[in-house]
Design a protein around this nucleic acid. Structure first.
Lengths: 347, 347
DNA sequence: ATATGTTGCGCAAACGATTGCGCACTCGTT
DNA sequence: AACGAGTGCGCAATCGTTTGCGCAACATAT
């Protein structure tokens, strides 16, 4: 059934030339006469020749393969990030190999090695939550394979990273709410082992400090498993009758917080305002639409891929840290409150 | 900077043996003495030898590469499907290469060809919405590369397909609502060029016919672009004051329908019930949680990958159509209505 | 006619790993 | 001592392409 693939040699014997000549003819090499070229092209067409990239790239130093390692397939952010990466990668005639580390550092190391087995030209890596140092990436570094760390990273001077300014984003969100009169804001944050979580929380904290607003620990919800949220949520309501706003640091946390508010019968934004850092999808199908700091997965993906391909093709080992700006998208989930009772006359 | 990769030859000259022997030693070939084996292993370790899969698979007939072509990265279903596929693929020591066709048949053809360039061992394909015949896959078929079509397919006797029983699912959903007294149900369907949409609609229709219920055309919302939904939605409400339930055929349509209901201030399920075909994520963060026919992306992915790997490894070209069952998950979004006035004795 | 250049192609070596075959050597058996 | 059967390894071909070098044939310039 399966037709054997035609090779250069097959074409060569067909048209009575040598394989080398066929290769050059197909590559439009100047050494080959136009007449021969067209004869070869016809034959190749007729025999439905398909080049064997495996053999080609065995000789060449590169493979035109880019490996992406993600901790898991979240329904938020990751898909759009992959879409963005894939777009650029395909446009540049690379292929994307996707791996999941399942948030395990052992897997992550294994996959990094695997990437070198395949001689990937570059590696894109979203760190697992277990990862606290980068030694297991030495294989890549030693072989000079460019690596870009994105989204979830840790501090490093060895690898290029692409992130948003997490601290700034956390701060900006809090300030946005404060500017609209909210003084008791509950922040919903993820796994604190991740830099992305700790930094956003840090910014959230700083905004409070700058405004001289108190920030009780019970105002900070630290969610590792999503089921942790419900209980902390109720506690926060109990502890803070003056609670008027929620901030969630990811889409995941946003939709669940939104759900809990709905279940509680709390009206948004009349009773409680809601704000998030988001890639913009969820805010558009939640009611009311959610004001957020937009952090586009597609953009992150595209820029990352561009950067990596640049590193590959210019053989650059310059290290850099790219910060992507978030943009504020104002929708209907935040209400303006009267300013806090600081010697204000009730009107 | 970049260390040159060590090869078998390097190890060979290091320990004073031939490359062939090194290869066999590392492969634990019985011809090689235990003492040599351990010497070789040590040297390999010390020189941090990494096998070149590219070279290895050039000789072998296979590549242990599986290509997945999806039309787009939807936030629903596709991610969990990829997760499922990846899981099985990684467990079996294959790698997954992901391509996006951007719903273009031209791209789809190009990518199928590309997969043969890379000598992928198998191809997983979710058809683009433009695709109406399968000629462009002949490259794959001719070279005997196993192909499995999943989720969005068209009729074919040439390729193995994995789908849910779409017609049955549409029918079952409608019947579920009817059994609870709903007689005026609005169905929200996707792009009618896709079999997945037309079949689910077909089942929805059949359920109505079987129960002798009228089904006006305005009860059927056909949504190609998501923005089409809002207008049709309002029209449906205007046309059918007796409307008591919505059925959405995907998660995508579910979240937007849910949003429109919320915006309209319609209470679920008191005023209008809601039911969907879903992979279960969205129903858990929408309020109230949505009763649905579950269609697990992970399961689809895993079974598909298993099937493909089986085909690859047993060299089977048997064609089959696998139907995955949906399971009913009853949550809070469907209310029971009084049965229609058909001479029933109220008990 | 000699030197110089150009054109168009073949030869053969790589890339790195695998593997059928052969060969030298050891050991045990008769 | 002769034979047979292992044991442990090397040789070299192979997978399909690419590419530096060489070379013959022919053209052009002295």
């Amino acid at each position: 059934m399966a037709v054997k693939r035609t090779t250069l040699k097959d074409i060569a014997s067909q048209v009575g030339l040598s394989p080398g000549t066929i290769s050059r003819a197909l590559a439009d090499h100047p050494d080959i006469s136009d007449e021969t070229k067209s004869r070869v092209r016809e034959a190749a067409q007729a025999m439905s020749y398909i080049p064997n990239y495996r053999a080609r790239y065995l000789r060449a130093k590169h493979s035109r393969l880019i490996a992406l390692i993600v901790p898991e397939m979240n329904m938020f952010f990751v898909p759009s990030m992959i879409a963005g990466i894939n777009h650029v990668v395909q446009q540049n005639d690379y292929s994307l190999i996707v791996f999941q580390s399942d948030n395990s550092i052992v897997q992550e190391r294994r996959l990094a090695e695997y990437a070198t087995h395949l001689s990937a030209d570059g590696v894109l890596l979203v760190l697992s939550s277990e990862t606290s140092d980068l030694q297991h990436l030495d294989v890549l570094h030693d072989f000079g394979i460019p690596v870009v760390l994105l989204d979830r990273t840790i501090e490093t001077t060895k690898y290029t990273t692409i992130t948003i300014d997490d601290e700034q984003a956390g701060r900006e969100a809090a300030r946005y709410l404060m500017d609209r009169g909210h003084t008791r804001i509950v922040g919903v944050f993820g796994d604190q082992r991740q830099r992305i979580s700790s930094m956003r929380l840090e910014g959230f904290r700083r905004a409070h400090a700058e405004r001289g607003l108190p920030l009780a620990d019970s105002q900070i919800l630290r969610v590792t498993m999503i089921d942790d949220l419900a209980k902390q949520f109720d506690d926060a309501f109990a502890a803070h009758p003056d609670l008027t706003a929620f901030f969630t640091m990811t889409d995941d946390l946003l939709v669940h917080t939104h759900y809990l508010l709905a279940r509680r019968g709390t009206r948004i934004p009349e009773e409680v305002s809601l704000m998030a850092i988001s890639d913009g999808e969820a805010p558009s199908f939640l009611h009311p639409n959610v004001t957020h700091l937009r952090h586009s997965g597609v953009e992150v993906g595209e820029r990352t891929a561009h950067l990596l391909i640049g590193m590959i093709e210019h053989n650059s080992d310059a290290m850099m840290d790219v910060r992507i700006r978030t943009t504020l998208v104002e929708l209907g989930s935040v209400a303006v409150r009267a300013k806090p009772p600081k010697k204000r006359v009730k009107s």
